[in-house]
Design a protein around this nucleic acid. Structure first.
Lengths: 224, 224
DNA sequence: GAAATAGTGTCTATAAGACAATATGCG
DNA sequence: CGCATATTGTCTTATAGACACTATTTC
């Protein structure tokens, strides 16, 4: 490679709605891949922020109207194939946000939309964004086996059933309620936040994430 | 930030020698940080290779005379503080190599040297390389709780005692031999490679890593 | 009371920790 | 034999899975 490669920051933003894991995409308005769906992000050159993460957050705010609480670096992809213009590098972040906090803003921004992760697999996306998403998804699945960060995709406060449900959707398989609750209680990861009466059934206790939950990892995985 | 930031690839190369975890540094010959020890790596612009990892490998070969078997991306750091010249981004890789395979070449390259990880903590290194090393170290420690990739830092074939020993050094605490052997056998991660009689004691069975060991993770951690 | 959802009791299964015991070589 | 190192037997402990059971609400 001769001169400096393009450097971008792209984000895979997950949320949870209607029992489905969804992901925010924006429609490109310039070449290459004009008019195709892509991950929100963009060039680092000219961006606002003192760190890569700050730039990622700023781009999300500007281009998707989304203010993110949980964000995490996933990996960096870079080669001479992923952009038709030549060498290109993308630092990929993954974020989790409550759907309610975001879908209005997403509508508000032109050409941003949420897609179910399942539907998405068959779409043709810009650049190697399809591959990037698969990596981010796999990372999220792994994490859901030994942490409860998925809870950051729920509007707080939430019930344990809701928290379990998002884990089941991410993992694509049922979880034993007893195991799930037991380990969360032992690790003391949630803060009580009252109680709620849903349409039917017994009222459920409400919780919010304790700060410790952001980093906590169980020593033993759920069945993968 | 205005124009494109500097983009570099830097590698934290671990090895194991004299019961110590060591790490390869090179002495810089240009400003900034001229004459200070730094991680092997360098600018992506002008480098040889079709992917970031290929570039990392190539730089290791050229600048440190080291051909790496196990290499893994750790993270990417980027901000406007880490380089006095301005915005700068570094994609960090971590590699594990047998000391014997490397130290001759390292000697052979001017101003490359191995440092014990402990000694290193008090050294002043170029850029934010000290911080980068701490992140890579922490990642290696975590991995050593649920995988045996540390074995890639040993010359094959090796004994189980040697493999256990490097884990103990990395983790900074003893491991139960029984637990260690049990889980490795169950996961079928090693291939028998004969037997060896050391100076004293019972002869030990020799093994090499099976390809599966590269990616395998145990469902349960050793005590952290 | 029946249905629906939340939450618990408790037994089993799995894998790690502790540590004593055995195995195999050398001088 | 006695020392050194390797390897195993086996009991205990910790935590997840299974699944039945209880609890609380609405109709």
């Amino acid at each position: 490679m001769e001169k400096a490669p393009f450097l971008t920051v792209d984000s895979v933003i997950f949320s949870f709605d209607e029992s489905a894991l969804k992901l925010l995409l924006v429609k490109r308005a310039i070449d290459p891949f004009n008019d195709q769906w892509s991950l929100p992000g963009g060039m680092v050159a000219g961006a606002k922020g003192n760190t890569l993460e700050a730039i990622a957050r700023d781009k999300l705010m500007i281009k998707s109207g989304v203010d993110v609480d949980y964000i995490e670096q996933v990996f960096t992809t870079g080669n001479d194939q992923r952009d038709p213009r030549g060498w290109s590098v993308s630092v990929v972040y993954s974020a989790l946000i409550p759907y309610q906090a975001a879908h209005h803003n997403a509508d508000w921004v032109a050409d941003a939309a949420w897609f179910k992760v399942d539907e998405l697999a068959s779409m043709r996306l810009a650049f190697d964004h399809q591959d990037i998403i698969q990596v981010a998804l796999e990372r999220l699945r792994q994490k859901s086996l030994y942490s409860i960060v998925a809870g950051y995709a729920l509007p707080a406060p939430f019930t344990l059933s809701q928290l379990q449900h998002i884990h089941e959707v991410i993992l694509g398989k049922p979880i034993q309620a007893k195991s799930f609750r037991r380990r969360i209680e032992q690790a003391d990861l949630l803060e009580p936040a009252g109680e709620i009466q849903l349409d039917r059934g017994r009222p459920a206790a409400l919780f919010r994430m304790k700060p410790a939950a952001r980093k906590y990892t169980f020593v033993r995985n759920l069945d993968g």
